[in-house]
Design a protein around this nucleic acid. Structure first.
Lengths: 191, 191
DNA sequence: ACCGGTTGGCTAATACCCTTAGCCTTCAGC
DNA sequence: GCTGAAGGCTAAGGGTATTAGCCAACCGGT
């Protein structure tokens, strides 16, 4: 029996792809084994178990999302940076719904966890956006959470078909970005 | 063997309570059967299966959330109504994390689905909040989605322990409400 | 009071799914 | 070429959702 030439990264990548295609709920060890051409127990040579797999997929997703947002805001600031970050983030979640879903409901085991590292890299990108709005230092964490909540909420609701009625989804998203921009500008430190 | 006196509503209520206590992921047919004092297969006399159970729990959660928001905003308008709605919603999600978690990742089967009905009732409550901000009619759907995204995002992230770092969660939420209020006021129709 | 049908329990059995144990082949380095 | 680790495999066990089929309990009318 020839070897399949797998390694952890390949298994995780295949799992992420499978989750995107079939939905995160349909991600199964058996299905993943089929996809990479191996019997189920063999996966355990590369990954400690399903929870570990999900954790790694989540780390990958956060890494990729941070990357997407980071490059999108290059050279931009203020409203432009905000809009670019928001669009990049939403586009990432919509094209990779399965792997992004892996990130919710997972807790990092510690501060050196690869997921925690990826998450803080993602936050750094958004922090860069906020730098264009000179907020009081004490407001930065609040603004970060607000930004993350709004974008996360919109992207997950849309990807779960949560917006069933009339108005155009892209138009609504522009409106959301506008509101965030106005809100952030209104919070600027008095000078 | 005496009867347990169950009906669908009792099963769903017990399932929702179990999900709140143990976490949505730990909601299992066997565990629910234990809790209501019955063997697992008997549940199928009241509920079509696990998916049906989850769907009904989700509908219940949306119904209750709509109710909570609706009564919270009675007699209020503008910023007060917004703050009351936001607090009521977040409080509901935080006290009932399990049943609210049932609402994510579920699609309504059709417009007459009980979940869809409950969802639109919840939206009506938020629509009432927006009426205090006289927005242009075309912006109402956008504002509704924005509101829902921000509140849903914040509540789910917090309930999933998504906010790990320093700043106070309640303070951040106030900040979010402030930003929404400012943003909405800035979108009022010119007169 | 009975009696028949429906309702709501039950046991048994099936089909997945995740995981562990233990074996055996392949491959890389010496 | 040998040897040891790495990466496949089969077999087996435990958990979960679900279905089939049986039987007792309840409710109505007579």
């Amino acid at each position: 029996m020839p070897r399949a030439g797998l390694d952890p990264a390949a298994v995780v990548a295949a799992g992420a792809a499978l989750a995107d295609e079939m939905g995160f709920g349909a991600l199964t060890m058996g299905g993943l084994a089929d996809r990479v051409g191996v019997r189920t127990p063999s996966l355990y040579k590369h990954v400690a178990g399903q929870e570990d797999l999900v954790r790694r997929i989540a780390a990958l997703a956060l890494e990729e999302a941070a990357q997407a947002v980071g490059t999108a805001i290059q050279g931009l600031s203020g409203r432009d940076a905000l809009a670019a970050a928001a669009h990049a983030f939403r586009a990432y979640v919509l094209t990779h719904p399965g792997r992004y879903a892996a990130t919710i409901g997972i807790e990092a085991t510690g501060p050196d966890d690869s997921m925690a590292v990826a998450a803080s890299r993602a936050l750094d990108s958004f922090r860069a956006v906020l730098r264009g709005y000179d907020l009081p230092a004490t407001d930065e964490d609040h603004a970060l959470r607000t930004l993350r909540s709004a974008l996360h909420g919109y992207a997950t609701l849309q990807s779960a078909q949560g917006f069933r009625w009339s108005a155009d989804v892209d138009e609504s998203f522009e409106w959301l970005v506008d509101l965030l921009d106005r809100g952030l500008r209104g919070s600027a430190a008095p000078r």
